[in-house]
């Protein structure tokens, strides 16, 4: 199968000289269309930096990324962001508190250049409906009028409205209650089902990675230390760090 995204020896260093910090060190992996890959690691493992590199919010110090075989450096940013979108950790911070949901969505649609009002409206409605929200009730709302779960749904709606090929979900559930996490993860599952979108799911919670993804990359100090299908990584982990991570997860049953 042809890869959607190929990441080749990607590195990013912050600062220089003695205080240089290599947040991401030579990360390589392939992502197939429609695949969900989880990047698991604790804070400081470089997983969020990797997310920002893939989103091109940050440029790599070294390495290369290919989107459908094309070097991403050759793709203009606005075009790239039509194919690659994001959902972030804190659904409150991701909103500009001064603007309504409608404005948030309309701004995202400007990526497609001028669209007829009718089409803009249709796209916004469709996206909100597909995450289980009622457009008429939500569009005029401001972030403080929405619950945490609703806010994260709106952010997912914003992303899928743009019909990207790849969605980078950077800890999309860690600011949410446990009772809401499954709901948001199910939403991501359904999005993949319906639109065939690939998802890179960044998380510190191996349980969530296990539930949602097809493959897992375990990151430790900027490097991918283990990679493989979910069952293999969780049930027969090889690397000592992965083993420790799994043994430190509290047992729930038994």
């Amino acid at each position: 199968m042809k890869s959607l995204l190929q990441v080749r020896a990607l590195s990013r260093t912050f600062g220089s000289g003695k205080r240089a910090l290599q947040a991401v060190k030579g990360v390589s992996f392939d992502l197939a269309p429609g695949e969900i890959v989880a990047v698991v690691g604790e804070s400081g493992s470089g997983k969020s930096t990797l997310a920002r590199l893939i989103l091109r919010l940050l440029s790599p110090t070294e390495g290369q990324m290919l989107l459908e075989g094309q070097d991403v450096q050759r793709i203009p940013l606005r075009t790239y962001w039509r194919s690659v979108q994001a959902v972030f950790q804190d659904p409150y911070a991701a909103f500009n508190q001064f603007y309504s949901v409608q404005r948030l969505l309309q701004k995202a649609l400007t990526l497609f250049g001028p669209l007829p009002t009718q089409e803009r409206k249709a796209r916004m409605h469709l996206a909100l409906q597909s995450v289980g929200l009622e457009p008429e009730r939500i569009l005029g709302k401001y972030p403080h009028q929405l619950s945490g779960g609703q806010r994260q749904r709106v952010m997912v709606a914003r992303a899928i409205m743009l019909r990207p090929r790849l969605l980078v979900a950077d800890e999309p559930t860690s600011a949410l209650d446990a009772s809401l996490r499954a709901t948001v993860l199910n939403l991501l599952k359904d999005v993949r089902q319906k639109h065939g979108m690939s998802i890179i799911f960044i998380t510190h919670d191996i349980g969530q990675a296990y539930y949602l993804s097809d493959r897992i990359l375990v990151m430790y100090r900027g490097e991918v230390v283990e990679e493989g299908p979910v069952e293999q990584v969780v049930e027969q982990s090889q690397h000592p760090y992965t083993k420790r991570l799994l043994s430190d997860v509290p047992r729930f049953h038994g």
Binding site: A178, A182, L185, G207, Q208, Y210, E231, V234, F252, H253
Partner: peptide, 11 residues
């Protein structure tokens, strides 16, 4: 039921 832990039943 909403708890997600790396135990086989959740997949």
């Amino acid at each position: 039921e909403a708890v997600l832990v790396p135990e086989p039943y959740i997949r």
